[in-house]
Design a protein around this nucleic acid. Sequence first.
RNA 1: GGAGGAGUCGCAUAGUGGUCUAGUGCGGCCGCCUGCUAAGCGGUUACGGGUUAAUACCCCGUCCCGGGUUCGAAUCCCGGCUCCUCCGCCA
Length: 426
Amino acid sequence: MLSLQYIREHEAELRQAMANRHTETPLDRILELDSLRRELLQEREALQAQRNQLSSQIGKADPATRQSLIDQTRGMSARISELEPQVKEIEGELDALLLQMPNVPDPSVVVGANESDNLEVRRWGTKRQFDFTPKPHWELGEALGIVDFERGANLAGSRFEALIGDGATLSRALANLMLEIHLGEHGYTEVSPPYLVKPEVMVGTGQLPKFGDDAYQIESDELYLIPTAEVPVTNLHRGEILPPDVLPIKYVAYSACFRREAGAAGRDTRGLIRRHQFHKVEMVKFAEPEQALDELESMVRDAESILQALELPYRVMLLCTGDMGFTSRKTYDLEVWMPGLDRYVEISSCSTCGDFQARRADIKFRRTAGAHAELVHTLNGSGLAVGRTIAALLENYQHENGSVEIPEALHGAFGGRTELAAPRFH
RNA sequence: GGAGGAGUCGCAUAGUGGUCUAGUGCGGCCGCCUGCUAAGCGGUUACGGGUUAAUACCCCGUCCCGGGUUCGAAUCCCGGCUCCUCCGCCA
């Protein structure tokens, strides 16, 4: 969420930013309500000040003046309680509208309308040359019997799969490899968070109120299934003021993620690319404002190191203003090469949200003991999406006969085996 | 799920309708003093909003959250949340 003061003082700049995002926003109404609110506040607070003044005299007043004081304050209270619901209503509408305003892009972000204007920053690895037509991962996974789409759908409906045998092992081994690299080499602290969270937690990171349809909700308990570990981990410090010298804080969390994929009908209907449930290793950072952009760069490198460890070719994209997420100030996507699909597929998205989420979730820090509390900057990025990594491995490591090599970094997890095996029965 | 108890300034506590402008101790910060080290002295100590050039002054609000009673609520009433103890259930 943006601060009202910022909105008030940077109207022109903000209009440009929203135009760059290609988003309609309730900016006019917000400005209107803001000045109305301040008008009412001034009247109300003046009355409250008077009332407090007189009220404090009542206790020690003699009976005669006492009654006249009570009569005077009674009139003030009456007017105050007229103004109160008006202020409350305006603030209610204002808050609701503020929650609809997306973040302002960082000046370093390229202006563009959509995906096609994203900027390729760099590439890594060489695409393998195949002397046969590489198959898509779902064919490979199904043929091996390690990814079972049909039985998954029987259990939970479309877009749910069951991993069997080496498929399940691969998923676990990948998560473990990712965690070990981020913990051992990049200095993150591991978190295992709740998968169900309260609505206000979803508001904190920006999933609610605007994108409620995308999340699974447990109505009987007013809880939401997390669409990413970003939600519980960023909210881990909600309502806190972090002491000096602890930033940057770097967390990594492995979790299941749940998304309804409302509005995604017909897109990526086959395979492991777009699922209702998937696993992801997520990085979350809390940083001082001046550190945030540098921390974003290093987070992207941290995500890249996983693809490098697995020897998967990829490219790094800087998202343009029109393609960035609601909460983001600046976003890099990592896109892995999928030879079976013959295209690059997003496998990680790393963003700095500036103080946008911190304001919603009320997360602050002090630079030094006794200094004023300031909002932290929050960052998050996948490191990586496990399901999509499985898909990328299957496609990149396949042989013509449908067998699939295990990347060297994972040999240990498979007892030294170098090729994925079919389960005994499938 | 049932019964009971508790939530006050970073921490520990005091406060049970007006003198609370929330006291005290510890911690933190600033300064002084003592030529070292556990010391001593003085000051200071939150957040949001309004106003403002101001992160200065002033004003409003905040004693878990939300309602209510009252001229006036940390204090009384109602609802919720969280934690603790015991019982039940359970991986």
